[in-house]
Simulated scan of single mutants.
Amino acid sequence: MSMPKFLPAAAVMIAANGAAAQGPDLGQPLSEDEIPSYARYVMPDGRGLPAGGGTASEGAAVYAEKCAACHGETGIEGPVMPPVGPNDVWAKPAGRHWPYATTLFDYIRRAMPIDAPKSLSDDESYALAAFILSRNGLIGDGDAMNAETLPAVEMPNRDNFTDVWAKQGAEPW
């Protein structure tokens, strides 16, 4: 397969034209209140975490109402990947798979519940993260999870992942 003939010429034109390299200068930046919460990055160190918080007991109520149908009554049964374990089917369920507790929070906030993704409040997402972390023995039942405490949780599988942002010394945005 050969490279299309127009690509080298396009590369020369873009390199020669500084304005093209900067972008077309279209649109305008969004204000902070125009960016939905689920469209913000949450970094492993906690940057990007929203205000709010929740405990495992608050999370238990949310879990029973919005999560148990898929993940099992106690979080062990499934049928969809149970968040608590290990168990007979999943060696690393959600509470032990994620490298950072902030990643668990971000996934819950963006993707759950499956029938209504992005519908959880930040407090519900913190409470569910606390519930899962507590059920996996990673935090105490009364520990509150928030923007300060969540990044401090040491996840058991942390060393089995590579943090590309730290290795590159780069910011994701």
Rank of each mutant, 00 (worst) to 15 (best):
N136H: 14
A170L: 02
Q22H: 05
N146Q: 13
G75L: 01
R96V: 12
K92G: 09
I132Y: 05
I139S: 01
M155T: 04
I35N: 07
G59R: 06
K5Y: 06
V42K: 01
G53C: 09
P99H: 03
A116C: 00
M112P: 11
L30S: 10
V84Y: 00
E148G: 05
A129I: 02
Q22T: 07
P113Q: 14
M1H: 12
V12S: 10
C70M: 07
L128K: 09
A166P: 01
S2Y: 09
F105D: 00
M81N: 11
V84L: 03
M145P: 06
M43Y: 15
P50D: 04
E73F: 03
V89E: 14
T55D: 02
P79Q: 06
A61P: 11
S134G: 08
R158Q: 14
A51E: 14
G46L: 10
E65H: 14
L26H: 04
G78H: 11
I114Q: 07
H71F: 13
M112K: 10
H71V: 13
P172L: 04
P44N: 04
G137T: 07
L128M: 08
A68N: 05
P44C: 02
L7P: 00
D122M: 06
A94D: 10
S121Y: 12
A16I: 10
P24W: 14
G169V: 00
M43P: 12
W165D: 05
T103V: 10
D33T: 05
L30E: 09
P8Y: 04
Q28K: 07
R40F: 08
G169I: 00
D45S: 03
E73H: 06
Y38I: 08
A144F: 15
L150S: 11
E124W: 10
D115I: 11
P99C: 03
A16S: 12
G75E: 01
S31M: 02
N87F: 04
Y38C: 06
K118S: 07
A15Y: 11
A91D: 13
A9N: 10
A11S: 15
A21V: 13
D163S: 00
G85D: 08
T162W: 12
V84H: 01
R135T: 03
G95Q: 00
G72C: 10
S57D: 10
Y38A: 12
E58C: 08
G48Q: 02
M155L: 04
P24Y: 13
K118V: 08
G169D: 00
N17S: 07
C67G: 08
G23Y: 05
E77Q: 13
A9E: 11
P36T: 10
I114Y: 05
K66I: 06
G137I: 09
A147M: 14
P113Y: 13
G23A: 04
C67L: 12
M112T: 07
T74Y: 02
A21K: 15
A166L: 03
E171R: 11
Y63D: 09
M81W: 11
